[in-house]
Every structure is written in C-alpha cells, then in structure tokens.
C-alpha cells in the first residue's frame, strides 16, 4: 500500500471525529450565542479558520516524530515517506480550505433563513469564498510544513542546532498567519495586499519544505522507542 493510503488509514479514526467535533462545537456555540443576541461574527471562522490550524501543526509534528520511523522500518524509503506526506498533506489542506468557506456559507445561509444574523455578520459572497480558500490553503500548508520542520529539528539534531532549526521551521506558520490570516469577519488581518502576502507565504513554505526534504532525505533512524 502506498504511504499516502496508509496515512489516510491511520488518520481516518482521527479526522472523522475531528470534523464531527468541530461541526458540533460550531452548532452548539452558535445556538448559545444566538439565544442571547444576533451574532456579529462567524463562529465557524473562529473555530474552523482560526483554531483548526493548530491541529494541522500537530499533525505535522506527529508525522515526523512518530510516523517517519514507523514507515522506514516497514520498508518505505525516506523519499517515499516525504512524497506520501506531501500528497496526504495537500489533500488535507485543500479539503480544509474548501471546508472553511463551505461551513461559513452554510452557517451564513442557516442564520439568514432563521433571521438571526447580526448587523455586522459577514455574509458569505462568492468572492469571499474564493478569498477564504486562497487564504486557508497556504495557511494549512504552512502549519503542516512548520510542524514537520519543528519535529525534524528535534528528531535529527540535538540541543542548539535543533533549537535553531525549530525556530526557522516556525517561520512559514508565523509569516503566513501574519500575512494571510483572517479575522472573525473573514478579512485580512494586516492589510497586506493578497498577491504580495501569497507570494511571501509561498516562498517561506517552499524554502522550509526544501529544507525539510534535505534534512529528512538521509536522516538516521535511531533506535529509540516511544
């Protein structure tokens, strides 16, 4: 079985409950808020947009800290692992970048139908959906790559080298978040024009992804348990 397929098998029991959990949380929180007042913000963008990226960061960490060794000892090369992770991560990131505007759209429609939208509620438009996709996708990829690089710093090197690699590894997540992160109304945080923010984010992601490839491609699989 390919690395990507195995990864989906491994993560299936994690991904599905996660999606159910975040949808439930959104429904419950929205119901709670609307019982008090008509919300002026999108609960979905708070949970799905702002919080879920940390989950992606953790996946990036776990992939290197736990799964790299497991795959190599079971006969995959490091390159096969990286390629499998890239496909797996890309599918996850695209799916989530679709889920964010989709969830926002549903939330927007339901609240509209119920007449519960506050005056400041960010009603989703076609352009807005596209922009959210364009923001969420690089953010997810950045958090995944950062998580993996941070774990690699710890996995491959010790002490100071590892710390430096970890700090460098965090750059895509921090930069992309700063440049492309959206607030609870779905707008850009810092007012950096999107094309410039996207270009810088992609550059940071690509640079660290290249470093990750270099660091993993001949990393020793040390005999440490757990």
């Amino acid at each position: 079985m390919s690395v990507t397929r195995v990864l989906f098998r491994l993560y299936r029991p994690i991904i599905l409950p996660f999606v159910v959990m975040i949808v439930l949380a959104d429904v419950i929180a929205t119901v709670a808020v609307t019982s008090v007042r008509h919300p002026d913000f999108s609960m979905w963008l708070v949970l799905g947009g702002a919080a879920a990226k940390y989950w992606i960061l953790v996946i990036g960490i776990i992939l290197v800290a736990m799964h790299l060794r497991q795959f190599v000892v079971n006969g995959a090369t490091r390159h096969e692992f990286l390629a499998g992770v890239a496909v797996f991560g890309l599918i996850l990131a695209v799916a989530w970048a679709i889920a964010v505007p989709l969830g926002h759209g549903i939330e927007s429609a339901v609240l509209g139908a119920a007449g519960k939208r506050g005056p400041g509620y960010p009603v989703l438009t076609a352009g807005g959906a596209l922009r959210q996709f364009g923001q969420q996708l690089p953010i997810s990829l950045a958090y995944l790559v950062s998580g993996a690089m941070i774990a690699t710093g710890f996995y491959r090197w010790r002490a100071w080298t590892g710390l430096v690699v970890m700090l460098g590894g965090a750059v895509p997540a921090l930069a992309t978040d700063w440049l492309l992160g959206f607030d609870v109304w779905g707008g850009l945080n810092r007012g950096v024009p999107y094309p410039a923010g996207l270009a810088l984010s992609v550059a940071a992601i690509a640079l660290v992804a290249w470093g990750l490839h270099r660091a993993i491609s001949d990393v020793p699989i040390r005999p440490t348990a757990g």
Partner: peptide
C-alpha cells in the same frame, strides 16, 4: 534510499521501533 531494496528488507531492532 533504494525503494526496491528497502521494501525487501526487514530489520527488527530490540526497541521494536514503535510508538509505545
């Protein structure tokens, strides 16, 4: 890093190389 060779190789260490 040769996929054909590594796929055909199984090296078992005393740690089992698993997650606890």
């Amino acid at each position: 890093e040769n996929p054909a060779v590594m796929r055909q190789t199984c090296f078992i260490r005393d740690t089992l190389d698993t997650n606890e």
